[in-house]
Amino acid sequence: MSQNLQRTLVLLKPDCVQRRLMGEIISRFEAKGLQIVAMKMMRITPELSQKHYAEHVEKPFYKGLEDFITAAPVLAMAIDGLDVISVVREMLGATNGLKAAAGTIRGDYSSSRQMNLVHASDGLEAAERELKLYFSEDELCDYETPMLPFMRAGDE
């Protein structure tokens, strides 16, 4: 297995769910050749929000963030791929949808700093920590797809 093969957490946030953009965004990840290995719709509780956004809990904007992320269901996904953490973050675009480039998910669908549709882990340590908050080991479904030889070279 390649050392560049990674796993990341992606959350389709309440605004994405409410705007019915889940399928559109999932299809972008699949079209890119990324592999979804776990997915579930859920509600984030205030307790889970505090664990997920632990570094922000004491900041003045945290209450608004918690109110937003707990307001409606989210779709949590574990996604695998080569350099998937940076690939997904590039696909999302800038955090502020008003500043995100056209062609990125936020650039195409968001016009807000907070209502920016998707969360993705920002590094390996964050991905490992966040994945454990949302998925147990038995919920992760590793599998091989017959398309893999047509998605990347054998030495990648």
Rank of each mutant, 00 (worst) to 15 (best):
A100I: 12
I79T: 10
V74C: 10
M151P: 13
L5Q: 15
S112C: 05
T8H: 10
D108F: 10
A127D: 00
K40P: 06
G81Q: 07
E125K: 12
Q35A: 13
M91P: 08
K51S: 00
T95V: 07
D83S: 13
I105N: 15
A100H: 14
T145M: 14
Y109N: 13
G93K: 03
L65M: 10
H52I: 01
A94K: 12
G64E: 06
T8P: 06
V88H: 09
V118R: 09
R20S: 15
T145V: 06
Q6R: 06
A54L: 01
D15N: 11
A72E: 07
L5I: 12
L82Y: 10
G123L: 01
R20V: 09
E24L: 08
M77G: 04
Q6H: 09
E24W: 06
D15R: 00
S111V: 02
M42I: 09
F61S: 06
L5T: 06
T145A: 11
R106G: 14
L82V: 07
L131C: 08
L9H: 07
L133R: 02
P60F: 04
M39K: 06
M22V: 12
R113Q: 13
Q114W: 04
V118Q: 09
L117N: 09
L11M: 05
V37M: 10
L117C: 07
G103S: 02
K32T: 09
L148I: 12
M41W: 14
E30M: 09
L12W: 03
V74R: 08
E66G: 03
V17N: 12
K59S: 07
N4A: 11
G154W: 02
V84H: 08
V57N: 04
C141H: 08
G97F: 13
A126N: 13
E128W: 00
Q6Y: 09
G23N: 15
R129D: 15
A71C: 06
G64V: 01
Y109H: 15
G97A: 03
K40A: 10
A102R: 01
L9S: 12
C141T: 02
L75C: 12
A126H: 07
K32L: 12
F135V: 01
G81M: 03
P60C: 03
V118H: 06
M1Y: 14
F29Y: 15
E139P: 04
A72V: 04
F61H: 07
R152A: 14
L124G: 04
V118L: 06
P60R: 00
V87M: 09
E66L: 02
K51L: 03
E137W: 09
V88Q: 08
Q114K: 09
E90P: 05
K13H: 00
Y62C: 04
T95M: 09
R28P: 14
R19C: 13
G154A: 15
T145K: 15
D15T: 01
T45Y: 05
T45S: 14
C16G: 07
V37T: 07
E156I: 05
